[in-house]
Nucleic acid binder design. Structure first.
Length: 480
DNA sequence: TGAAATGTTGGGGCG
DNA sequence: ACGCCCCAACATTTC
């Protein structure tokens, strides 16, 4: 082989379009070796639902790369070691990757970069994940933003990192003899025995094409209802792009640009477009928080929350996980999560508030469950959002903002259709009682074929009392 | 990107 | 006609 190859290390950027690292590799004109490394020892290794997605996403990426002309190499082990040995083995001249933002991952990348450079390898890294790098969006006085609204204003003003997307690659040249690869199937990323992913598989299409389809569907059919309808779990007005974004099958820049194209065509109102993009920008904000706060996934940003009188309530946690709290909107959300790997955002806030403020279970327990069960589990979003609900994060919801699961249900699922779908044992209950079955007269329950405490649980806690208790705890840490 | 408690206002019933 | 009370509706405050 005359020419020394260029390696592209794929991580959470599993796409061929507008992928700066992949494009840079192709620009060299050298044979391209794309690699994905499964590193089981890495901090925050993906949860089970994410691994299901990862399998399909990798398989889709491998297909796209193969069609373009290159073979995706699978290897497992400590990522720095694997990459260094691949460089040695192939005598690679270049290594490219798109950056990560969690301290423990940044450290690995930084060390690897300097090691490779010391060995004479050209390493270049890029922004393949965010609208803007964290250090590009700074307050007037020079630090990172800690409040969302000014952050969003600054980001809008600055605009996205690239105005023009890099096109989908149709041709990449790989080496004549590609390096050895493990088999994706041998990684056992898919569940067996039991296979709990059947409904997840019916709900989602992992991969770059699936991401494109989802974006087009949203832009054509739903975005104009987004601003008013996005809070309705019984409707389909959200983009559902989160897992695709999480794995980088699509980037926020592509979304930004597609939305602006639709606006320019007059197909999408400014209000709807900006509302949606501001939600996409929350993701950038979360990555900022993660980048500047090493402990974001583990420790409250507001340190006094470490002293909050949390309870160790195993039964409560179990009921919450299984969707058996006796509060229909909470249970519907938790079961939607379990069955489909995803939960509507409004309901995420409701179930999180319930775990933290009604059950007084530490937010990290909820974060861990979401990490394992969400197909869109994203370290920055997950950590920042749990801290937001708990009231201990940056620009957080105040602690005393406690959701009432009944009134939230009545407000955002007024007919009870969302509850009916995911809590089928309540499906015959009239809308009037569906968010508070314990208030239904005996005759109504009988008519609906419900025996509280048997076919559906009684509330595991009295919300009004729980609210008082949570506020008491807040007083404690405030005075401390 | 709350909810509950408390305060204010104004219309209607009624003596 | 008038004052008084009740209470719904709305606004403000508090957690």
């Amino acid at each position: 082989m005359a020419e020394r190859p260029a390696i592209v290390w794929f991580r959470n950027d599993l796409r061929t379009e507008d992928n700066p690292a992949l494009h840079a590799a192709r620009e060299t004109g050298a044979p391209v070796i794309p690699i994905y490394i499964l590193d089981k020892d890495i901090a925050h290794f993906p949860g089970a639902a994410s691994l299901w997605w990862l399998h399909h996403s990798l398989s889709s990426l491998a297909g796209d790369l193969k069609n373009a002309g290159a073979k995706l190499i699978y290897r497992s082990g400590k990522s720095a070691d694997v990459l260094k040995s691949l460089v040695k083995e192939t005598n690679a001249e270049h290594v490219f990757w798109n950056r990560r933002y969690y301290a423990k991952h940044v450290e690995i990348d930084k060390d690897l970069k300097s090691d490779l450079k010391a060995g004479g390898v050209a390493v270049e890294t890029f922004n393949g994940t965010l609208l803007r790098e964290p250090w590009e969006v700074e307050t007037a006085s020079g630090g990172p933003y800690r409040v969302y609204t000014p952050f969003w204003k600054a980001l809008k003003q600055l605009g996205p990192a690239r105005a023009h997307m890099r096109p989908n690659l149709r041709k990449i040249v790989g080496p004549a003899n590609p390096p050895k690869s493990e088999k994706l199937a041998s990684w056992n990323l898919l569940p067996v025995n039991p296979d709990w992913a059947t409904e997840i598989a019916e709900t989602w299409s992992p991969g770059e094409q699936g991401a494109r389809d989802r974006l087009n569907h949203f832009l054509n059919d739903n975005i104009n209802d987004y601003a008013d309808g996005r809070d309705r779990p019984d409707k389909d007005f959200t983009s559902r792009l989160s897992p695709h974004l999480s794995f980088g099958e699509i980037g926020p820049l592509q979304i930004w640009s597609a939305v602006h194209d639709k606006m320019a065509d007059g197909k999408v109102s400014d209000k709807a477009a900006m509302k949606f993009l501001s939600e996409v920008a929350w993701r950038d904000f979360s990555y900022n928080l993660l980048f500047y706060n090493d402990d974001l996934p583990d420790k409250p940003l507001r340190e006094n929350f470490a002293n909050y009188p949390w309870r160790d309530d195993r039964d409560g946690l179990k009921a919450w996980r299984k969707g058996e709290t006796g509060y229909p909107i909470v249970d519907a959300g938790m079961r939607q999560l379990w069955r489909t790997g995803w939960m509507h955002n409004r309901v995420r806030m409701i179930v999180a508030s319930f775990l933290i403020k009604d059950l007084l279970i530490p937010w990290q327990k909820g974060e861990a469950w979401f990490w394992d069960t969400l197909v869109d589990a994203d370290l920055a979003n997950n950590s920042a959002s749990w801290q937001w609900v708990a009231g201990c994060g940056a620009d957080a919801s105040p602690y005393f903002r406690i959701f009432n699961p009944v009134s939230q249900g009545e407000k955002f699922d007024p007919e009870g259709q969302y509850v009916r779908e995911f809590v089928p044992e309540l499906k015959n209950l009239p809308a009037k009682y569906i968010h508070a079955p314990w208030k239904a007269p005996e005759s109504v329950l009988e008519e609906a074929d419900i025996v509280l405490g048997k076919s559906y649980p009684n509330p595991i806690i009295d919300h009004a009392k729980a609210r008082e208790r949570a506020l008491e705890g807040y007083k404690e840490i405030k005075s401390a």
